[in-house]
């Protein structure tokens, strides 16, 4: 009996050695590559070439890479660009999507199902279809704003819209309908119901979409690379440039990569709870 009680955890469930060993191995696999990058980013170029990062006692530690990449390489400027690109591109789509989601959830109208099915279908469409037509529309042949932030804001707003409407609508269907009915009977218009009831009640879903969109915009390479001029380019584009320069600048690459990850990781860790809830609410029925 005593042997049996030894394999129970604090909450009374049996302790599974197999589960512990396997998860530890998987966790190591999932963290060691990132750890390698982090350690390498604090090493001098010579040290990184002479020793693997796991030889931590071989010396050659430095903060220079961060200094150089931030100040010398223009990473500081592109860091700002990333913020300037990501924040408006995250915030602007939300209201458009929220109104549409409200209509799809709480109003009945002819064509509702068909239109919503189109939105579901469009989520699958690869954004590559849009590049040539959008380059025409935003480039010199059209509005002439290609290269500026505005071009990227517009694109991310459009591309994020189907997912935004879909996630918000999925969440809103879980809200109690009686609340809306009683608001209606109270004489509230749809506009008032939306602002006073639905928006406050949908905050978790709004936050979840915002996090998802922020990560997506911040981490995006394609749109930023194609639609932003060199002055306005984001950290991800800058990082991709560093990756291309094989050999020289290798020590800056690791520091640059870490700088590019800092903000998403902070967002991610501080808001993880919302993010998880939103993901599960959006994709899992319920």
């Amino acid at each position: 009996m005593s042997a049996r009680s030894a394999v129970l955890m604090a909450d009374g469930r049996p302790r599974s050695r197999f589960a512990i060993v396997t998860t530890v191995v998987l966790c190591l696999l999932w963290t060691i590559p990132t750890l390698g990058l982090l350690l390498t980013s604090f090493r001098t170029r010579d040290a990184a070439r002479a020793h693997g990062w796991w030889e931590i006692f071989s010396g050659g530690w430095t903060f220079d890479n961060y200094d150089k990449v931030f100040n010398g390489n223009g990473m500081g400027g592109s860091f700002l660009n990333s913020l300037v690109v990501a924040v408006p591109a995250t915030v602007i789509p939300i209201m458009f999507a929220a109104f549409a989601a409200y209509a799809f959830t709480f109003m009945d109208f002819p064509g509702k199902d068909v239109i919503f099915v189109v939105i579901v279908a469009v989520m699958v469409v690869p954004i590559q279809v849009a590049f040539q037509p959008m380059l025409d529309m935003l480039g010199p042949r059209g509005l002439g704003v290609s290269g500026q932030y505005i071009a990227v804001w517009i694109l991310h707003t459009g591309f994020g819209m189907p997912l935004a409407i879909y996630t918000l609508r999925n969440y809103m269907t879980t809200l109690p309908r009686t609340v809306i009915e009683s608001a209606k009977i109270d004489g509230a218009s749809h506009f008032q119901t939306f602002w006073r009831l639905i928006v406050p009640m949908s905050v978790p879903a709004l936050a979840a979409f915002a996090i998802l969109q922020f990560l997506w915009v911040w981490n995006d390479l394609l749109i930023a690379k194609l639609f932003l001029s060199a002055d306005n380019s984001t950290v991800i584009v800058k990082l991709q440039g560093l990756l291309g320069s094989q050999g020289q600048g290798q020590e800056l690459l690791t520091a640059g990569a870490f700088i590019s990850m800092a903000i998403p990781m902070i967002v991610f860790f501080t808001l993880q709870r919302y993010f998880v809830r939103g993901l599960t609410a959006g994709a899992v029925k319920g």
Binding site: T34, L215, N219, L239, L243, T254, A257, M261, M265, F268
Partner: peptide, 20 residues
């Protein structure tokens, strides 16, 4: 949390990590 963390990393960042 550890397994979820790469969700925050860009494809380019991940390519840098694995490139090493």
């Amino acid at each position: 949390s550890l397994v979820f963390l790469p969700m925050a990393i860009s494809f380019v960042g991940a390519s840098t990590i694995w490139g090493l």
